[in-house]
Amino acid sequence: MAVIAAALAFTAATAACSASGTAATSQDAGVSKKAEEALASISGKILGKGANGEEAATPDEAKLSDAEVAQVKAKNATAAIVMHYGGNDWSTAQVAGMKSEFARLGIKVIATTDANFKPDKQVSDIETVLAQKPDIMISIPTDPVATAAAYKKVAAAGVKLVFIGNTAKGMTVGKDYVSVVSADDYGNGVVSAHLMAKALGGKGEIGLVFHEADFFVTKQRYEAFKSTIAKDYPAIKIVEEQGIAGPDFAGDAQTVASAMLSKHPNLSGIWGVWDVPAEGIMAAARAAGRTDLKIATEDLGKNVAIAMAKNELVVGLGAQRPFDMGVTQVDLAAGALLGKKEPGYVAIPALPVEHSNVLEAWKQVYHQDAPADLQSSFKK
Rank of each mutant, 00 (worst) to 15 (best):
K160T: 01
A257H: 04
D275A: 10
I348K: 04
L359G: 03
A309H: 05
G335F: 14
G204R: 00
V358D: 00
V129C: 13
Q254R: 15
D60S: 08
Y186C: 00
Q122P: 04
G97T: 01
A79S: 09
V327S: 06
T128L: 05
S227R: 14
V180Q: 12
V180W: 07
Q94K: 09
K379A: 13
A235F: 08
I136C: 08
I46C: 03
V95L: 09
H84S: 11
G251C: 08
A40Q: 01
I164E: 10
P371Y: 05
D143S: 06
A96L: 12
T11M: 15
M282H: 04
W274S: 06
D185L: 09
V159K: 02
K219N: 14
I126P: 00
S227L: 01
T328V: 12
A156P: 05
K219M: 12
A197M: 09
V72F: 08
R286T: 06
G87D: 13
D369I: 00
E342D: 10
K203I: 05
A307G: 08
D125V: 06
A103V: 15
I306W: 00
W90T: 00
A157M: 03
E298N: 10
F10L: 06
Q71T: 09
E101N: 05
S32E: 11
A250H: 05
D60G: 15
M282N: 10
E212V: 05
A333C: 14
T291V: 06
K73E: 09
Y151I: 01
Q27P: 02
A115F: 01
I140A: 09
M137E: 05
V330R: 01
A70N: 05
A250E: 12
V154A: 02
A350Y: 02
H194E: 08
A2N: 14
A235H: 08
A79C: 06
D292A: 03
D125P: 13
L47V: 08
G189S: 08
A157K: 04
S192P: 10
V162I: 02
I140M: 07
E127K: 15
V190E: 06
V209M: 13
V82G: 05
S268D: 15
K379T: 15
A51H: 11
V346A: 06
A70D: 15
A250C: 07
R321C: 12
M196I: 14
A307W: 04
P119K: 01
E127R: 14
V217G: 12
A150P: 00
H355A: 01
E68P: 09
D185Y: 02
Y366L: 04
A16P: 02
G269L: 03
Q364C: 04
L359T: 12
S91Q: 15
K160S: 14
Y186S: 02
Q132H: 04
A347Q: 08
Q364L: 15
